[in-house]
Simulated scan of single mutants.
Amino acid sequence: MKTPFALLGLALCLLLAPAVQAQDSYPSKPIKIVVPFPPGGAADNFARLIGQKLGEAWGQAAVIENKPGAGGQIATQAVATAPADGHTLLVVTVGHAVNPSLYPRLPYDTEKDLQPVAKLATVPSVLVVNPAVPAQNLKELLALAKVQPDKLAYASSGNATTSHVAAALLASMAGVQMLHVPYKGSAPALTDLIAGQVQLMIDPLLSSAQHVKAGKLRALAISSATRSPLAPDLPTMAEAGVPGYAFAAWFLLLAPSGTPAPVVAKLNAQVARSLGAADLQERYTAMGAEAGKGTPAELQAFLAAEIRRYARLVKDTGMKAE
């Protein structure tokens, strides 16, 4: 006859068996990483870098699918309604935390339908202007904006994206009015900025640096609280004339809610190993990016706090989806 302890042990084994099996068999097919922006932007770059690493580690291809539009809602809904098995993932940035306050109705519940898996990166943004803009620094740019309300147009990667939030925050803190022109991604926004269709943009350093080096854009300030090693001569926004300004874009990897905890844990651990690899650290340094970290539970708390933070920003600035 089995003792109570033996029966308890058997029961625990039966309960844990499906979880162990889920972790051991994952991934059983290619992983799809959905990006809410066109190719070429920061989110797309991080998705491809981590996708390559996951493929190398597990022998299953990681396919990047770009689904831009509606401020990230199209891509987010697609993943929120996908099978919760860890084979469909989503890369999001600050806009994911802004959307619940910016849009009266979303086709998904931001906190209930998706869950954080890992943080991929944190990246400072840079304020860039078209060379034809007669401003050599941030103070001169803000002076122009004050005498010409809504005449200076700033591009963004779309409603509620990092570039939209960063510029709305700047306008609010500086007490100026500028016209918001949303695009479907950083690449088309930068194309129009270079062409002079819009005058400025606060864009992740990753995608703007090449255009600044080529002389197609002029950099005025970095958005982070400290200067970037990639541009040590470029002042922070606070140093350049807006005390207290600090903004950095973050990039999270999400999965549909209900994804088995062992699968989420396996993904989180592998992303951490990948971010620690020497070659990826070298790439991040070259992009001015900081590797992300945190457990799924810590990132869930982080995202909830960011949603509350940006709810206050939307209310205080009157930020709207254009």
Rank of each mutant, 00 (worst) to 15 (best):
Ser186Lys: 09
Ser186Cys: 10
Pro188Thr: 13
Ala189Asp: 02
Ala189Ile: 05
Leu190Trp: 03
Thr191Trp: 09
Thr191Tyr: 13
Asp192Glu: 14
Asp192Gln: 15
Asp192Phe: 14
Leu193Val: 09
Leu193Gln: 08
Ile194Glu: 02
Ala195Leu: 12
Gln197Cys: 06
Val198Tyr: 11
Gln199Ser: 07
Gln199Val: 00
Gln199Trp: 00
Met201Arg: 05
Met201His: 11
Ile202Trp: 06
Asp203His: 00
Asp203Thr: 06
Asp203Phe: 00
Asp203Tyr: 01
Pro204Met: 06
Pro204Asn: 15
Pro204Gln: 04
Pro204Cys: 09
Leu205Phe: 12
Leu205Ile: 15
Leu206Arg: 09
Leu206His: 13
Leu206Cys: 02
Leu206Phe: 14
Ser207Gln: 10
Ser207Lys: 05
Ser207Cys: 04
Ser208Arg: 09
Ser208Val: 14
Ser208Tyr: 07
Ala209Lys: 13
Ala209Arg: 15
Ala209Gly: 06
Ala209Trp: 09
Gln210Met: 10
His211Gln: 13
His211Glu: 07
His211Cys: 02
Val212Gln: 08
Val212Phe: 02
Val212Asn: 08
Val212Asp: 00
Val212Leu: 01
Lys213Asp: 13
Lys213Thr: 13
Lys213Asn: 10
Ala214Trp: 08
Ala214Asn: 12
Gly215Ser: 00
Lys216Asp: 11
Lys216Gly: 11
Leu217Pro: 06
Leu217Thr: 05
Leu217Asn: 07
Arg218Gly: 01
Ala219Asn: 07
Ala219Cys: 00
Ala219Arg: 01
Ala219Trp: 04
Ile222Glu: 14
Ser223His: 07
Ser223Trp: 07
Ser223Thr: 12
Ser223Asp: 02
Ala225Ile: 09
Ala225Pro: 09
Ala225Met: 06
Thr226His: 13
Thr226Pro: 03
Arg227Cys: 01
Ser228Ala: 06
Ser228Arg: 05
Ser228Trp: 10
Ser228Gln: 08
Pro229Asp: 11
Pro229Arg: 10
Pro229Gln: 10
Leu230Cys: 06
